[in-house]
Computed example of a mutant assay.
Amino acid sequence: MKRTWFITGVNSGFGRHMTEQLLARGDRIAGTVRDLESMADLKARHGDALWLAKLDLTDTPAIRRVVDLAFGELEHVDVVVSNAGYGLFGAAEEMTDEQIAHQIDTNLLGSIQTVRAALPHLRSQGGGRIIQLSTMGGQAVFPGGSLYHASKWGIEGFIDALAQEVAVFNIGCTLVEPGGARTNFRYQSARLSSKLDVYDASPARMAHRMIEDGTNMPIGDAAKMAAIMIDSVDQQPAPRRLALGSDAYNVMRKQLSDRLAALETQKELAFSTDFPAGM
């Protein structure tokens, strides 16, 4: 079944893999990028099947204009993929206010506003699918990733609640939680904080060391992951989450199990704060 997709950040990473696979099978793509020239090769090859617009996710009015334009010109969009984003790494204290604001504005607020801009269109056309790129870091945490985790835990909460709000409109929502994949995320698009010497003794410094070293190759095959994301649209109902990569599965299972075990130890304490029955 041929579909029309709206995807943010189609010039690299999962967005690029999805776009290439979808165009190869005959689907239409409305894609956003910050640099239109980065898509010149695919545009020349696929012509009108690839609709492009320049977009910076920190610009909310622009998000609304681009989403409205895409739905207007293509008339119907089956799937909205909120993919664009990046990682900011380092200890929380080492980051500037500007770095923190840009990370949250891009990954969290930009994703929220992209989905919000699409919802009226999806409702009016009778439904559709929303795929939100998250990460294993949306369920598990690592030192040196506090602000990146903040953005991804935030978008997971938003999509989880949104899925319950919009199911009545035949809109399905899926969170994708990949582990490390061989894209440009880790060694090209990732941004690092400055360094405070005191944090050389902190586990937070491991993020700097890994990215600066540049030789630790992730285990995940991004093309395989993109294919699973695409195929998930055929599933009914929409899967709420997709864990992709053995590292994602192992890390999330361990940390979720630890959190549940810690919660169970607090059951008696939690219940002790209720009013007695009948009061």
Rank of each mutant, 00 (worst) to 15 (best):
R123Y: 07
R65G: 01
E268F: 13
L175H: 02
V67H: 05
A70L: 09
A190K: 11
A101M: 03
L108G: 07
Q139Y: 12
D105H: 12
E73L: 09
G31M: 07
E93A: 15
L23I: 07
P178Y: 09
G9R: 06
T273K: 13
H17N: 13
P218E: 07
Q99T: 08
A181F: 15
L260D: 07
F14H: 06
L23N: 10
I63K: 03
G157W: 05
D41P: 02
D213E: 05
D247H: 10
D68E: 12
D258V: 03
L263Y: 14
I112H: 02
C173Y: 05
A248V: 08
A207T: 06
A161Q: 04
K254A: 14
R129K: 13
K254F: 04
Q266M: 15
T174G: 03
N107M: 06
L36P: 02
G15I: 04
S194C: 02
I171C: 13
G9P: 05
K195M: 12
D68P: 05
W153D: 00
I211F: 03
A248N: 09
C173K: 04
A150R: 05
R16M: 10
T60R: 13
N83H: 05
S38V: 02
K2S: 10
E268C: 03
G138Y: 08
V115A: 01
M95Y: 00
S257W: 02
M136G: 13
I63M: 03
D213L: 00
A190F: 03
M206Y: 03
A30T: 05
L269Q: 14
V10M: 06
D97I: 00
H149V: 12
T4P: 09
F169A: 13
R186A: 15
I63T: 07
N184H: 08
D48E: 15
M39N: 06
H102G: 00
Q113R: 13
V66T: 14
E73D: 13
P218I: 04
G87I: 09
Q103T: 11
R241I: 00
S246D: 13
P120Q: 12
